[in-house]
Design a protein around this nucleic acid. Sequence first.
DNA 1: GGCTATATGTTAAAAATTGTTAAATTGAAG
DNA 2: CTTCAATTTAACAATTTTTAACATATAGCC
Lengths: 230, 230
Amino acid sequence: MKKILLVEDDPNLGLLLQDYLQLKGKFEVVLCKDGEEGLRAFTKQPFDLLILDVMMPRKDGFTLGKEIRKINEHVPIIFATAKGMIEDKTQAFNLGGDDYITKPFRIEELLLRINALLKRASSADKSEEEKQTNFKIGRYDFDYTTQMISAGDFHQKLSTKEAELLRLLCLRKNEVLTREEALLNIWHDDNYFNGRSMDVFLSKIRKYLKDDQSVEIINVHGRGYKLLIN
Amino acid sequence: MKKILLVEDDPNLGLLLQDYLQLKGKFEVVLCKDGEEGLRAFTKQPFDLLILDVMMPRKDGFTLGKEIRKINEHVPIIFATAKGMIEDKTQAFNLGGDDYITKPFRIEELLLRINALLKRASSADKSEEEKQTNFKIGRYDFDYTTQMISAGDFHQKLSTKEAELLRLLCLRKNEVLTREEALLNIWHDDNYFNGRSMDVFLSKIRKYLKDDQSVEIINVHGRGYKLLIN
DNA sequence: GGCTATATGTTAAAAATTGTTAAATTGAAG
DNA sequence: CTTCAATTTAACAATTTTTAACATATAGCC
């Protein structure tokens, strides 16, 4: 679960935002009521994203942002600022993958920006393997993004689950993909029924690939599956 | 190339301006000879800037400006007005980043103002990802502000909800836009009926985009949608 | 080997989600 | 009050996923 540090001096707004982000956004939200408290919290535990109110007593949001930048170069920051205060100040932060939002804002808009920033941050440290979307399976080409298997004139659209499962098999080509790993990755829950559901998809995928003898998905009893390509 | 709508009833002046702006300013200029024709043109295709003569038969420039503002909140407008007619009337538009110029004017002066307004409009956009209003979708251009899809001669006006949904898809291009996020952002309430309503709009948007095979909105079952552009 | 419990393969039915079209409703504009 | 467009609701179709049912295979054990 992603962790957010929210620094906002207005307790009404602060608690509202905290509640909403925890409920709808499924984030863990730490709320601080001023810049100094915020800085202390930041030095004590790691956060995935910061939301800083600009207008605050004692230590304003921009100052806090600058101090935090010295400690951590990359953590994404969203500045909440009143209209008109924007232009000059934010320039200092434009380079650093940050964002700002002008008060008053719709809370959905804030959520949109949070997700955009988190995505940008996380895609930066994704491994090459996880980014691969095109696979060669015998004489078939499998495009995970479009969820399609092709071989010459032949095209077969895959459902989402089919595509996700086949992708995992491809990533583990010639190795064992354990049932547990597949279930956790795709269904996010390893239980009997999801397991049976997966078996059904395995069966379907095998049908799609049956015309190429050199391709085979074999079962490793009690452990998982291996995609073999000769 | 920036597109300008010029509404001017005097054909001599109109044609002169059109020629000059096309040659010197390298704009594409559509000339209309009265307010009604101008409004029709505006609803049919997107423009980056409008130049409206205030003194016109049938529908004067201010009336036209007000009607256009209802359709599009942001497009910059330059009013061309005779001396003395200015003060009171223009106040209504001062908020909206508009400008006016008094007749007679030097044409270089007009060009100066056009460029100033265009720059302001575009730099306001560029600062944040979420403020982006122009998207390339395969061979289509989608302008969120004018709620219009264009491809060469083809222009399609979108309704508000259609435009908002397409915008979100564009912002999440090649990634999943979850149903929940879209519903919260556009309908501000995630419930069954709004979901079904969204499905209807998805269907409509797909129809608008169907002529470009390289563009596809695929469903990720149980999660949301992905806009794919090859 | 044969027996049994568990795991997997396959197919079909049920349930849930999504796609599409049309009708009903709403709301702004004349 | 009518007209028109946008949106929602309803109805039905198609697709995807889950559940159920039954068949087959594997491993451990006697």
